[in-house]
């Protein structure tokens, strides 16, 4: 009897482990293994196989490293902030449940559904001098006959701004849906109590809704932060390699564009490690600063 009970207890205790072990095994084979290989490679000299910090030296002395770091930092800080506020704005609009809200939600999610490559191409064809963006401006009377805007020419700042806007267009929906789910999870009485006890829309938003949304905001922002640091596809689609270096674009550049250079494997490995460290640190710092580790309400 007691033995049976004990085994039943044991069964209950090990069930969750049986259920999660496949995930961890899967990660081990298809994530930890390649990651470790890359990590090890970054510490080895490819010709001699000796331990070496050459990869890191190469990256840190790369003239493109500082610009890449700076460009990435600018993009990340502006994108994440801007995307968060726009996504929050959209989520708050949709939460009002107005006539047409459901269709609006669908439309707002649309950019997320489209293939990034196609979206890149869409903007590329839009931004060429004969592209649809100029055509549109022409039709609404903004661009007089014969005049054209050269979107893809010009300063680094202009390119950065374009990239940030275009990237935002596609990724805002994925931030928005997380925030929307969080907003919908807040019992409406909590906000209504705020209105009854003297709050207007903005005080209730600031003092009740947003504090209650905090865990959701942290989740959405950290996921976005991790992805934003690794931006590259839209950059090379719009301006090509090397014109506007960003960190992960450098990895792709050495992997795909000039894989035969002597330094390519080491450059790629070095950049990969540096990106990983930066991403981890950024995520960690964000979570620490936003108080995700010291939540006292405790559910």
């Amino acid at each position: 009897m007691t033995a049976q009970r004990k085994s039943a207890h044991l069964g209950k205790r090990i069930t969750p482990y049986l259920l999660v072990i496949p995930v961890f095994i899967y990660y081990l084979i298809f994530w930890v293994q390649p990651v470790l290989q890359q990590v090890i490679r970054s510490f080895l000299d490819p010709t001699t196989g000796q331990l070496s910090l050459e990869s890191y030296r190469l990256v840190l002395t790369d003239p493109d490293f500082i610009p890449a770091l700076r460009n990435t930092a600018i993009i990340v800080v502006i994108s994440v902030t801007m995307e968060f506020f726009i996504a929050l704005f959209l989520a708050l609009i949709i939460k009002r449940d107005f006539w047409g809200a459901s269709i609006f939600l669908f439309l707002a999610m649309l950019p997320m559904a489209l293939p990034p490559v196609a979206v890149g191409a869409m903007w590329k064809t839009g931004l060429t001098t004969n592209g649809w963006l100029n055509s549109l401006l022409h039709y609404v009377g903004f661009l007089p006959e014969g005049e054209k805007i050269y979107w893809l020419a010009g300063s680094t700042w202009k390119m950065l701004a374009l990239i940030i806007i275009i990237d935002a267009w596609q990724v805002i929906p994925s931030v928005m849906i997380i925030l929307l789910a969080g907003l919908q999870n807040i019992p409406k009485e909590l906000e209504e109590a705020g209105y009854v006890f003297g709050g207007n829309y903005f005080t209730v938003l600031r003092k009740i809704t947003l504090p209650l949304l905090r865990p959701t905001i942290q989740t959405a922002v950290v996921l976005r932060l991790i992805a934003a640091i690794q931006i590259w596809l839209i950059v090379i689609v719009l301006v090509g390699f090397s014109r506007l270096p960003v960190l992960v674009e450098r990895i792709v550049y050495y992997h795909e564009e000039v894989p035969r250079l002597n330094i390519s494997p080491q450059m790629a490995a070095g950049y990969t490690m540096i990106v990983t460290v930066i991403v981890s640190l950024a995520a960690l710092i964000y979570l620490r600063l936003s108080g995700a580790f010291s939540r006292r309400e405790g559910g």
């Binding site: 019992p187 009485e189 209504e192 109590a193 705020g194 209105y195 009854v196 709050g199 009740i208 504090p211």
Partner: peptide, 20 residues
């Protein structure tokens, strides 16, 4: 008038005590 201008107070069925 919006709720805040009515000077009423309310006890909700599920209390709506602010958890934060």
């Amino acid at each position: 008038l919006p709720p805040r201008k009515r000077n009423v107070s309310m006890v909700f069925q599920n209390y709506a005590v602010w958890p934060h």
